[in-house]
Write a protein that binds this DNA or RNA. Structure first.
Lengths: 292, 292
DNA sequence: GTCGATTACGTATTACGTAACAATT
DNA sequence: AATTGTTACGTAATACGTAATCGAC
C-alpha cells in the first residue's frame, strides 16, 4: 500500500531538483530519501527516475506520478479538514445576526445553557445571506430583521430595538421630544463599526452626516463620555450600559428606526432551542457586558 | 501524516461491524486493529468511535471519515493504475484493425522491428471507432478499410484483400470461373470468428446461409481439410496457408468482396513507422503463421 | 576537492502477536 | 461460556542516521 509520506517526499524532490536539497527541506538524510523512492518505485512497479551515477532525474512516469501524488495528498488533506470541521461543528453553536444586539443576548443565553459548547458569532447584514448560510449549516442560529417563511426553519420574534440620538444638553436639537433622520442629516455623529444593517440605515437616511466610525467598543464608550458629539443609542444599549446623566436621549420617529428581530433555526433544533423565547422575556441586558 | 492502511482498516471495520470480524478479514489480530484506530483518531484529532466496554461503534465522525477514506483510497488506486498504464503504454505497440489480415502483417513487422516492445492486437469492426480510439491513444496504430482524412493522422494504403470461396471439386458451383454472393446465398459455409467487418459483409450478402462459426484457427484449418463444406478464403490466406489441392478457389465478383486496407497512426510517429509501407511490399505472408 | 547518490551497517523506533484481563450477552 | 475490546509485554520488522564508496563536475 502506498505511503503518503513517500508521495510528499516525491513532490518535494520534484520541486527541489535533487535528493540532497529535498532531504534538507524534509529534515531527513539523503540515504533515507533514496530508500523511500526505491520503495515507492517498488510499490508502483514503475521506474520514476532516470538514475545516473551521481544524478537522479524524474522521468516521464515520475512527472506524471507527481501530478497524481498531489491529487492524492489533496484528497487526504480534504479528509482531515472536513472530518475535523464536522466534529467541531457539533461542538460549536455559531450565531449570525443582522445587528449586534441579538448576538449579545444569544451569546449570553447559549453560554449559560450549553457551557460545554464553544460559541461563535458573526454579523451579516443581508437577510437572505443569513438564511442561505443557515440552510447550508454554516450557522446554527441566525437573526434577521424580518420574519422568515420557510418549511424547514422556525422563525419568531425575539425583541424590538428603537433608535435614539444621544445629545449633550447644550446641543441645539436637545429640546426636541422626538426627531427625524432628516432633521439629523448633516450632523457629525459618533458611530460604532460592525453594527450590521444599521450601517445601511445611516447611509440612506443621513447621507450628508459625517460619521466618525470607531472600531473598539470600549474606546467608543469613552469617547461618548468625553466628547460632546451626538451618537446613536437604542432602548437596548440604554438598558445595557445604563443612562448617562450628561446626555439627552431623543427618540427617532422614522419607521426605519424601529426594528423587530426574528430568530431562525432549523426545525430539527426545536427541542434544543425552544427555551430561547422564554429566556428573552424580561431579559437583563446588563449581563451581556463583557468585563475584560 | 495519514496512513492509507489505517483508512483501509477503517473501511473494513465499517463493513464488518466489529473489530474482531474486521481483524479476521484483514488477517491481523484484534489488538493491532485497536491500536491502528487509536492512531488514526490521534492523527485526525477526532473521535471516530463510541467506545463501550466491549463494543466499539462508528459515530457520526466515523461515518463521515469512512466516506472520505474511500475517496482517498480511490485516488491512490487511480494513481497506481494510471502511472502503470502510462508506463506500459510506452513499452507497448497496440494495433487494432477492422479485419485480421492487417494484424497478422503488422504483428510480424513490429515484432521484428521493435523486439523489445510488447505488441497487442485487437479487431474493431467500425472505422470511426478505430479512429477515435487512435486519437485517444488507446491504440498506436489502426487499420481501416477506407482512407482517413485527418490533420493529425497519417493514412495510406497497405494492401488489398479479395474474397474467394473454397469448394470441393464435387460441389455443384465448383465449375464457375467467378461467383456472386447471391449465387452463394443459402449454402452452409464454414467461417472463422473474429474476422472483423467481414462478418457484417457475410450477414448482409448471404443472409440465408448457415454460417458454421469456429473460434480456433487451427481447428478451423483442420475442419477445412476434413470436411467438404465451402469456406471463405482470400488472396492473403492463400499466400499464408498455401493452396489446398483438393479445393477449387472461385473469386467472388461483388464489389464488397474486394477490400483495400489503410494503415493510420499519429503524425508524431511518422519517423518511427514510416518504414512500414516499404516492408509491406512483396510481403511474405507465410511468415505470419504462428507455430505453436 | 566538492557535491550528489548509493550501499553497508548498527541502532532506535514501530508495529505486531500472544497472553491476560474486563465486561457484556 | 462465548464474544468483544483493551492493556501489557516481548519480539520482529522497519526506518533511520552515520560512515564509507563511487562518480561527476
Amino acid at each position: 500500500m502506498l505511503d503518503l509520506y513517500h508521495l510528499h517526499q516525491l513532490i518535494i524532490i520534484a520541486e527541489a531538483g535533487t535528493l540532497s536539497k529535498a532531504a534538507e527541506i524534509l529534515l531527513i538524510s539523503q540515504p533515507a530519501l533514496t530508500r523511500s523512492m526505491k520503495k515507492l518505485e517498488d510499490e508502483l512497479h514503475v521506474q520514476l527516475f532516470d538514475r545516473k551515477k551521481n544524478r537522479i532525474i524524474l522521468n516521464d512516469n515520475g512527472e506524471l506520478a507527481v501530478k497524481y501524488a498531489k491529487k492524492v495528498l489533496n484528497e487526504a488533506d480534504n479528509m482531515i479538514n472536513n472530518v475535523q470541521l464536522y466534529d467541531k461543528s457539533k461542538k460549536t453553536i455559531s450565531i449570525a445576526s443582522c445587528a449586534p444586539a441579538p448576538n449579545w443576548a444569544l451569546q449570553y443565553i447559549f453560554k449559560n445553557k450549553f457551557p460545554e459548547m464553544s460559541i461563535t458569532e458573526d454579523i451579516v447584514e443581508n437577510n437572505s445571506q443569513l438564511i442561505t448560510a443557515l440552510k447550508n449549516n454554516l450557522y446554527t442560529v441566525v437573526v434577521t430583521n424580518e420574519p422568515i417563511d420557510d418549511n424547514d426553519i422556525i422563525s419568531y420574534q425575539l425583541f424590538k430595538e428603537n433608535l435614539y440620538i444621544s445629545l449633550p444638553p447644550a446641543h441645539p436639537l436637545s429640546t426636541l421630544s422626538e426627531i427625524t433622520f432628516d432633521e439629523l442629516d448633516g450632523e457629525s455623529i459618533l458611530l460604532l463599526s460592525k453594527i450590521g444593517f444599521w450601517n445601511k440605515i445611516c447611509l440612506q437616511n443621513i447621507p450628508d452626516s459625517h460619521l466618525l466610525t470607531q472600531n473598539d467598543e470600549s474606546v467608543f464608550n469613552e469617547l461618548k463620555h468625553l466628547s460632546t458629539l451626538p451618537n446613536f443609542i437604542t432602548n437596548i444599549t440604554i438598558q445595557r450600559n445604563g443612562e448617562n446623566d450628561n446626555r439627552v436621549h431623543i427618540p427617532i420617529s422614522d419607521q426605519s428606526a424601529h426594528v423587530e428581530y426574528y430568530i431562525a433555526y432549523h426545525k430539527k433544533n426545536k427541542k434544543s432551542f425552544g427555551f430561547i423565547s422564554k429566556d428573552m422575556k424580561n431579559f437583563d441586558w446588563k449581563k451581556t457586558i463583557h468585563n475584560s
